[in-house]
Design a protein around this nucleic acid. Structure first.
Length: 556
RNA sequence: GGGUUUGUAGCUCAACUGGACAGAGCGACGGUUUCCUAAACCGUAGGUUCCGGGUUCGAUUCCCGGCAGACCCA
């Protein structure tokens, strides 16, 4: 039985008839307290009408001691638990025998759509795109790991006024050669030139841009073909980035995919009495929910994000019937999503909608933009990451491929290793850290395990019983048992950093163990059981890193 | 002006949603390679958890009022 189960029984016996609301054994905050602690007697003492300490004593008395070598009540009413060898050995054997290494397959037979990365077409990806891309992909991988069927959709910004500017610019700002060998970089330049001319006093250029846009919207074949070409070139370039990052989307459905459905969406909002005219626009009044009003059709008859997101959600529900749709975007869009979700609640959309916001990335203290001239291209960041990693890797005979695995791992880990709620200012040295709490630290720990296994001539699954007996072995063993919980918490909260933190702490426990405990030089069953512990750690580390999208080279 | 959000070591961040003496990494200082990969390990220094109240056995966490930054909406 699990420790939580044993505790639940003891609480039921000690406080019959009292709703406990789930009692848990948490890892002890300090090893001197034991292996686990339970704080729930404190929480429930009031309900039971007794002093906290007394309540804890009562639970301790009711506790089945078979799993423990020591149980004590401490402080105001903490229950400190030390598990015995038999329990620990058995728990390790069970988790190791599970194909998922104990990770609960709570998503089996269920489906989610995850919407992430979503760059604007005709622009190069820059460091500001890292967060949605990397965090979204980690959530994607974690959900797959807990058994969900995931549809990863890239909701490209592929429609809007910028295409009028682009088409005009393409025709009149580019050389024939540039038009023939069109790249995203060229498109970006073309946009900047054309947009600048659109600001001229006489307004001639601006009107021409608008005319091109109208033609595009009305389905003019030439403009439509140009637009299609811009999109294809953009996706080609994005996929080059995603390939570098090991990311694969199931679909690339941009805003344009939902164009045809938007009038219907608005009609239904009107006939349901949700949308009303206001100053020429159609709006949904959400002021009773303190969310202001959401425009669903502008006064010029155009649609906006809210409309296209509503069309998008309808389409996804109809096609996939997902349990949830998860949107990973920066937190400037919080209000937009709150409004959009509120409208979905009113129209009875049959899925759970989740917004996973993160703080915007700035660079040198300023918002990232072409105008500020502080735009660091993602391509350049990755190349710099590879270059820095190669400087170190080459001393040990590593190649470019290894430098990529390490450099890109460092970039990803830098963003995945902490709660993304706060805005961050991009810093080369922080993004590319190779030591301490970093991607390479974890990869290094993995390479050392692999090396150990190779030298031992076994893969760690040799049928030797687990028997962690030294302090360092025990600490590592206890940390390993927390793997499934870390994955579950990361998934439930949409926070990959919870998993990243487990990986780091567990790797620290491994490093300390490795430094102080001979493995290959130990003998007999001790050697075998230590190898098995190392093997389990290696398997979990690889699985966890995979969930974060970080490569696991066997040699560094 | 309204709203959201953040404030913890010099810097970057944790603290499992109210629990024990607030922990890691970087940086600083000192130590550990005849020994399984030193991208590692061990140790030292560093804190009024922005400020002031409140709630209770107990607050970095919850509530109220300020201050500061970031963003969103008029």
């Amino acid at each position: 039985m699990t420790l939580d189960g044993i505790l639940a029984e003891a609480f039921a016996k000690a406080f019959p008839g009292i709703e406990t609301g789930g009692v848990r054994a948490l890892p002890a905050t300090d090893p001197k307290f034991g292996d686990y602690q339970c704080n729930d007697a404190l929480r429930l003492s009031k309900k039971a009408g007794m002093k906290p300490r007394e309540a804890a004593e009562k639970v301790a008395a009711a506790l089945d001691r078979a799993a423990f070598s020591k149980v004590e009540v401490a402080g105001p009413g903490f229950l400190n638990l030390t598990v015995n060898d038999a329990w620990l050995d058995g728990a390790l054997a069970r988790i190791s025998a599970s194909p998922s290494l104990g990770v609960k397959q709570t998503g089996a037979g269920r489906k989610v759509v995850i919407d992430y990365s979503s760059p604007n077409a005709a622009k190069q990806m820059h460091i500001g795109h890292i967060r949605s891309t990397v965090i979204g992909n980690a959530i994607d991988r974690i959900y797959r790991a807990i058994g969900y069927e995931v549809v990863a959709d890239n909701h490209l910004g592929d429609w809007g006024t910028q295409f009028g500017i682009l088409i005009k610019g393409y025709r009149d700002c580019l050389t024939q050669e540039e038009r023939d060998r069109l790249t995203v970089a060229t498109l970006e330049k073309c946009y900047v030139l054309s947009a600048a001319k659109a600001k001229e006093e006489d307004g001639v250029w601006k009107d021409a841009c608008r005319a091109e846009l109208v033609k595009l919207q009305q389905g003019d074949p030439e403009n439509l073909a140009l637009w299609r070409r811009f999109i294809d070139i953009s996706i080609g370039e994005f996929e080059r980035m995603y390939a570098r990052l090991g990311i694969k989307f199931d679909t690339y459905r941009g805003e344009s995919y939902y164009n045809a459905a938007m009038p219907g969406v608005v009609e239904r909002l009107v006939s349901a009495g949700l949308a009303k005219e206001s100053e020429g626009a159609l709006v949904v009044d959400l002021s009773s929910e303190n969310l202001g009003v959401a425009i669903v059709r502008k006064s010029d008859g155009g649609y906006n994000y809210t409309t296209s997101d509503l069309a998008c959600v309808e389409s996804r529900v109809a096609e996939y019937a997902p349990e949830k749709i998860i949107y990973v975007t920066d937190d400037r869009q919080k209000l937009h999503f709150a409004q959009f979700f509120a409208i979905c609640a009113k129209t009875g959309v049959k899925t759970t909608l989740v917004h996973v916001p993160f703080g915007l990335m700035s660079y040198q203290g300023k918002a990232i933009s072409t105008r500020e001239g502080n735009l660091v291209r993602l391509d350049d960041l990755l190349s710099e990451a590879r270059r820095r990693a190669f400087e170190i890797v080459k001393e040990r005979g590593g190649d470019e491929r290894l430098a990529e695995e390490i450099g890109y791992g460092a970039v990803k880990y830098a963003d995945l290793s902490h709660d993304p709620a706060t805005a961050i200012d991009f810093d080369w040295d922080k993004a590319l850290a190779l030591e301490g709490n970093s991607g390479p630290y974890l990869q290094y720990a993995y390479a050392r395990v692999c090396s150990l296994m190779d030298k031992a001539g076994c893969d760690g699954s040799a049928p030797a019983p687990f028997a962690p007996r030294t302090v360092h072995e025990r600490r590592l063993a206890l940390a390993l048992l927390e793997f499934p919980g870390a994955v579950a918490r990361a998934a439930a909260a949409y926070k990959p950093y919870v998993l990243a933190e487990w990986l780091f702490q567990t790797s620290q426990a491994y490093s300390a163990f490795y430094q102080n405990t001979p493995v290959l030089k130990s003998e007999g069953t001790t050697r075998l059981s230590r190898l098995r512990l190392c093997g389990l750690f290696g398997d979990m580390l690889a699985k966890g890193l995979h969930m974060l999208g970080i490569e696991t080279p066997r040699r560094i």
